[in-house]
């Protein structure tokens, strides 16, 4: 009996506040926009019984999804989100790998401190971390002031409200997600493997490429998923740092909902985004599983 209660409480909570809302989103994505409250139709009316339910079902259709394929705003937004997420993932690897490498090869007594320094930004507000770049990247911002004062440029660079600012923002906020798994992989790397490679005729450099890089592959893959998946649906960064030309699906969804108040289309956008995300999520879990099996 006790076991039942223990399972039932969190289960019921998640069903009511996680699964049911999704089914509602799915249902509304099949509905039509209406000038009413709530602003969509049909509404399920159980008082009319089975006939009413059948009637309700017959009014659902895939119109909104067809609409998504017709208006090029949507598929361009999906594509552009994927492109931005992919490019920022690669940039994050380029920035994160040397840091993770440096941490893994740091003196033992330093590692805990370095690790804490990487995790610390997690605890500070995401919004504030993104916001802090607005002052740096704006036209009269600190970066332009600095570059002009040392004479590298004479005209201020336009960075804020471009995709470049979005890349910087994503790399900055998601960097710890990349560093931590790579660090975990590199820290496990047995130093005697590198010595063995040298003993067998490798230079330091080729030992790095032949041993260190392949053995940190799992960490890089895990980190890439951890950056790519949330970036795809990112809303705050493109809204604050991106410009009018920065097209990301999270932003489109937000505007569709709050500005256009077109709930059915917003729901359809969400359903498609979810479908797209399922692929990398499944790949990520496969990868994790493979890694666990290789270790166990």
């Amino acid at each position: 009996m006790r076991r039942f209660t223990l399972i039932a409480i969190p289960y019921a909570w998640l069903l009511a506040l996680f699964l049911v809302p999704f089914l509602i989103v799915f249902k509304i994505s099949l509905s039509d926009l209406a000038m009413a409250i709530p602003p969509y139709t049909p509404n399920l009316d159980l008082s009319t019984g089975w006939a009413g339910f059948k009637d309700f079902l017959s009014q659902l259709d895939f119109e909104n999804f067809i609409w998504l394929t017709q208006d090029d705003l949507y598929w361009k937004a999906y594509l552009s989100s994927a492109k931005i997420a992919a490019i920022s993932t690669i940039l994050t690897i380029i920035v994160g790998f040397p840091i993770a490498y440096g941490m893994a090869r740091a003196p033992e007594e330093w590692r805990a401190t370095l690790l804490m320094l990487v995790i610390l930004p997690f605890w500070t507000s995401f919004l504030i971390r993104v916001y802090s770049w607005m002052g740096i990247l704006s036209q009269e911002g600190y970066l332009n002031q600095f570059l002009m004062s040392i004479g590298v440029i004479s005209e201020p660079l336009i960075i804020l409200n471009t995709n470049i600012a979005v890349y910087i923002g994503i790399v900055y906020t998601y960097l710890p997600f990349m560093i931590l798994p790579i660090y975990a992989a590199l820290e496990k790397l047995d130093e005697s493997l590198l010595e063995a490679a040298e003993d067998l005729g490798c230079s330091r450099m080729s030992a790095f490429w032949l041993i260190t890089v392949p053995l940190s592959k799992q960490g890089v893959i895990a980190g890439s998923f951890l950056v790519f998946i949330p970036t795809l649906g990112e809303f705050v960064i493109p809204s604050l740092l991106g410009g009018s030309k920065t097209l990301m699906i999270g932003k489109v969804l937000w505007e569709e909902f709050f500005s256009n108040r077109d709930w059915p289309v917003a729901s359809a956008v969400a359903v498609v985004l979810l479908l797209i995300l399922i692929i990398p999520i499944i790949l990520f879990q496969r990868n994790e599983q493979k890694q666990r099996e290789a270790e166990g």
Binding site: L17, V20, P21, F22, I24, V25, I28, P38, I229, P230, L232, G233, E234, F235, G250, L253, W254, F257, W263, A266, S267, A270, L273, L274, L277, I281, F284
Partner: peptide, 17 residues
């Protein structure tokens, strides 16, 4: 792993519903 916009949207639709 769920994008926040989706979680938020779905909860809002529930509360309204």
């Amino acid at each position: 792993v769920m994008p926040e916009v989706i979680t938020g949207l779905s909860l809002l639709l529930l509360f309204i519903g």
